[in-house]
Amino acid sequence: MTTVSVSIDGRQLDVPYDARVLDIAREQGITIPTMCEHEHLKPYGVCRVCLVEMRQGRRKKLVPACVYTFREPVEIFTDSEWVRETRKWILAFMLARSPREKSNSGHGGGARRGRAARQAQGNRRGQP
């Protein structure tokens, strides 16, 4: 089996070709939050909660850990400032839809919902 030399949060690893970032991270004891991922479902990569930062040379982008697989030597950062900031917004968008969000009900609640999202984001500041 071919392996790829990669790094996750600074740890140098040789991982099997096409291994999922999420699986490797779990093996390493690194927690990546997930939402749409489930053991009985195929990875779909749509909730964007499991986004991690992928760097390859000067190129960097956010990729979903549940569908991104290692095929070339890349560096993965599961908890960078960029990842945290984006993830927080995505969770805030989901929270704004929650039935407990009072401002969510009725017409014209939209913009207040946006602010609710900001608030939800603020409340979670500093927590992974």
Partner: peptide
């Protein structure tokens, strides 16, 4: 509507922008 940021986020942008153009911006 497949992924969260586009489905939810763009709506939030629109709502806040509508508020601003309606004099309800903060």
């Amino acid at each position: 509507g497949k992924c969260t940021p586009c489905r939810e986020g763009v709506r939030h942008l629109y709502d806040i922008l509508t508020d601003i153009s309606g004099g309800r911006g903060r």
